Amino acid sequence: MTVVGEAPPAHASGGLREYTQSATFTVPLGVTGVHLVAWGAGGGGGGSFLNTAVQGYASGGGGGGAGFMRGAITVLPLQQLTITIGAGGVGGAGSPVDGAASSPGGAGGDTVVRIGETVVAVAQGGSGGQGGQSGSPAQGGAGGSGGSGTVPPITATGGGGFVRTGAAGTAGAGVVSSPGGTGGLPPDLGSSNPGSRGRGGAGGAADSPAEPGASGNSGLLILGWS
């Protein structure tokens, strides 16, 4: 559930909110700490390369999976937290004309929590996969690297925690009709499971016409208090 500019909950005994879009959260009365579990966004897959004159075909690399962050922060009642959910990296374009360069995928956005102008937690997005490359023979694009993160500082009532790095995307191949590289997956810690969020996009397949890479999936934040 995503609530923008929400009023503080009526009861401060405990709660959980899931954010799939950017929003603000107002700390309930009586609450002095919140727990954060977050994933960034996946990187976009690279586009494929095509040069039919020399039978040059190369698929794009998959985008990197998002990073993961878990931690806690100290807050004040009625304080506002600004939550930015990372947007998935855009897939790269395939060769627009025969022999032209393909494009890499875009980086996935970071999922960030701020109090005022102060950044208190970050789950990084994965990087984009590279487009297929010209050459003799043509070369598949490299996969994008996985994101990491930054945990909140340790305080009297929260902080610490840990980060995990997302999986890298796999590389494409310089073979006609080869599929694009697979997008990297975000960390899955069992009870902390992002579902399809934070996955890297697949690279574009080596075909004619050249194919674009797929966009990465957006991020996620789960916020809880007791």
Rank of each mutant, 00 (worst) to 15 (best):
G169C: 01
R17Q: 14
G63Q: 02
G30M: 07
G116Q: 11
S95Y: 06
G180D: 03
G126L: 01
G56V: 01
G159H: 06
G108N: 04
L220H: 04
A12N: 12
R114A: 11
V37C: 08
P77Q: 09
G105R: 00
A53N: 15
V119L: 05
L16F: 11
G33K: 15
L78F: 12
A7F: 08
S148C: 02
A142Q: 13
P104R: 07
P104F: 01
A156D: 13
P187L: 08
G204V: 04
P8F: 05
A58Y: 04
Y19E: 12
V31M: 12
G91L: 00
M69I: 11
T182K: 04
A23S: 13
M69W: 01
Q130C: 08
S95R: 01
G108E: 05
G88A: 11
A10M: 06
V37H: 00
G46H: 03
A142D: 05
G60I: 04
E117P: 03
G67I: 02
G198C: 02
H11S: 15
P212A: 09
F162T: 10
V37G: 07
V4T: 14
G106P: 02
G128P: 02
G180P: 01
A101W: 12
Q79S: 08
G47W: 03
M1D: 13
N217W: 06
T2Y: 07
G15P: 06
P96A: 15
A156I: 11
N193H: 15
G219Y: 02
G213K: 00
G40I: 07
G46Y: 02
R70S: 13
G213S: 04
G143F: 04
A107C: 02
T165P: 03
G198P: 00
A214R: 08
G62F: 01
Q55T: 14
D98H: 04
Q139A: 15
A107F: 11
S103R: 15
S192D: 15
G91Q: 05
E6C: 00
R114H: 07
A23H: 10
A7W: 03
S22Y: 10
V34Y: 09
F68K: 03
P96V: 13
T2S: 12
L16M: 14
T24D: 14
Y19F: 15
G147H: 05
I73K: 11
G201W: 08
V34F: 11
R17W: 10
G143S: 06
S208L: 01
G45V: 05
G63D: 07
G126T: 04
G146F: 07
P77F: 06
R17N: 10
A202F: 03
T2V: 12
G140P: 12
S226Q: 15
P187D: 12
P137H: 09
V34W: 07
G42T: 00
T170S: 12
G129S: 06
A173H: 04
G147Y: 08
S196D: 14
A142N: 12
A210F: 02
A156S: 15
A171Q: 10
F25A: 03
V75I: 13
G94R: 01
